[in-house]
Design a protein around this nucleic acid. Structure first.
Lengths: 100, 100
DNA sequence: TATATATTTGGCACTATAGCCAAATAATAG
DNA sequence: CTATTATTTGGCTATAGTGCCAAATATATA
């Protein structure tokens, strides 16, 4: 495999890895319903502000979300909504049975 | 969030996490082209036999691949091919620019 | 300016993951 | 049975990820 192919794989893996954490996946699914400020997500997730902020930073670096500062609040939105359509397939993996 | 919703999120995150590693993603994309024995994947990946075997076990536990033992060789196949269709969306995330 | 609110960053402890080697297991050939 | 090949498992070290607290930053308001 050449360098270019490798870096494409790496970039895709990075996106998938970003989605591969329960809290971050929850955030992404919540953002699919509309923009949310960090404070709202903190309440929904039930973790520390700093923890949620770091998850959001990671999602942003992966290109999954984008932020929009309004006054003292920061709103996050899903950057690539097609990610949500994929979830049907992931659910198919789950119900197919051999998840341990 | 109730326990059931949480366990669904956890299961989906587990699948995404399994895909979120360059070597495992490479394996999945290779398996999309057809069944492969471990020895073939070892050559393609260029890692130790044990390393590849462990990645395959993880993918199997996540429900992404299945194995089929034929004699002394074990062939792996993609269990839920729809995963590959998702890659187009992941690529959209990549090209959208803010990947670091 | 002082204060309050929203968010991020630094730092730390804890846990999890990756990958190698060596050993164990399984199947086949001789 | 022995040797060989294919694969998995155990064990280890190194590295990365998670989540909390405390501190820093940014913005708004009195």
């Amino acid at each position: 495999m050449d360098d270019k192919a490798q870096s494409i794989i790496d970039a895709k893996a990075k996106v998938l890895k970003a989605l591969g954490h329960p809290t971050r996946l929850f955030i992404v699914e919540e953002l699919a319903r509309g923009k949310r400020c960090v404070c709202e997500l903190v309440k929904l997730v039930g973790a520390d502000f700093s923890t949620v902020s770091k998850h959001l930073t990671l999602l942003k670096n992966a290109g999954v979300v984008q932020d929009d500062k309004r006054g003292q609040m920061v709103f996050y939105t899903l950057k690539v909504p097609c990610i949500l359509r994929f979830m049907d397939c992931i659910e198919a993996v789950i119900v197919s049975g051999s998840c341990k």
